[in-house]
């Protein structure tokens, strides 16, 4: 193991297992990499499951772009209040220390680099960290972007949580995205069922973890991407 301890997640040496991670296991891997005391935005959908593994002792505060820090789990029964929802428009709860603010402040907070981590889904990510997650560019589709472009470039670190391949078996890690971009060079890590990958502007992808996929298979499926094992 590395002698460095300050940024343990960054210096983890390459390791692998024989089976792909389940969604819950993946959520736990991401949660474990989020530093105590962080301010975090978990987007909508699958990334929100990361909160299931953020222990209270870590004192991580969740941000939702519709104007709140410190929201708790989904509201049930009497807790439900129409005036208290998250970005997915799901009723949520307040935790002690919560705060409310207006939309311009909420996005200023994000754009200004005050959030530590944002976790988003993706259609495609490029080796240099370009993100495509708002449109598949299908002709005739009605476009909708929401806060995706602001989120992608706002946080200090943008992590993508996704499957490494589509259901059809198409790759989602690209040399260059073919879908319309959400942001340029904004993704620093990909957390997927089969691989945990660290990205930087060089385009050389550092492979931290593989699950049910060998390094050779990874390279074979992405011939135009250069990979290196972490800590190698």
């Amino acid at each position: 193991m590395s002698e460095q301890t300050t940024e343990a997640a960054d210096v983890q040496a390459f390791h692998s297992t024989d089976t792909p991670l389940t969604q819950d296991e993946l959520a736990r891997v991401i949660a474990d990499d989020i530093a105590p005391g962080s301010f975090v935005n978990l987007g909508i959908g699958q990334p929100t499951t990361v909160s299931n593994y953020l222990s209270p002792e870590k004192k991580v505060t969740l941000h939702t772009e519709n104007g709140m820090l410190g929201f708790g789990p989904q509201a049930t029964g009497d807790q439900v209040d129409e005036d208290l929802i998250n970005a997915g428009k799901i009723p949520v709860t307040e935790l002690p220390g919560a705060s409310y603010f207006h939309h311009a402040d909420s996005f200023a907070m994000m754009r200004g680099g005050h959030l530590d981590v944002c976790v988003l889904g993706a259609y495609q990510v490029s080796a240099t960290g370009d993100l495509a997650n708002w449109s598949t560019g299908k002709p005739g589709a009605i476009p909708a972007v929401g806060g995706a472009m602001d989120l992608a470039i706002g946080a200090k670190d943008t992590y993508v949580m996704m499957d490494l391949f589509t259901k059809k078996g198409d790759r989602k890690l690209m040399a260059e995205c073919t879908f319309p971009l959400t942001g340029v060079g904004c993704v620093s890590r990909i957390y997927s069922d089969r691989a945990v990958l660290l990205l930087d502007p060089s385009g050389v992808v550092t492979v931290r973890e593989l699950h049910g996929l060998t390094f050779e298979e990874l390279q074979e499926r992405h011939p135009d991407v250069r990979f290196e094992k972490a800590g190698a």
Partner: peptide, 14 residues
Amino acid sequence: PKPCMATKTAAELA
């Protein structure tokens, strides 16, 4: 407590 207050975090519920 206010009705909208969480009694547990998501991790504790999970």
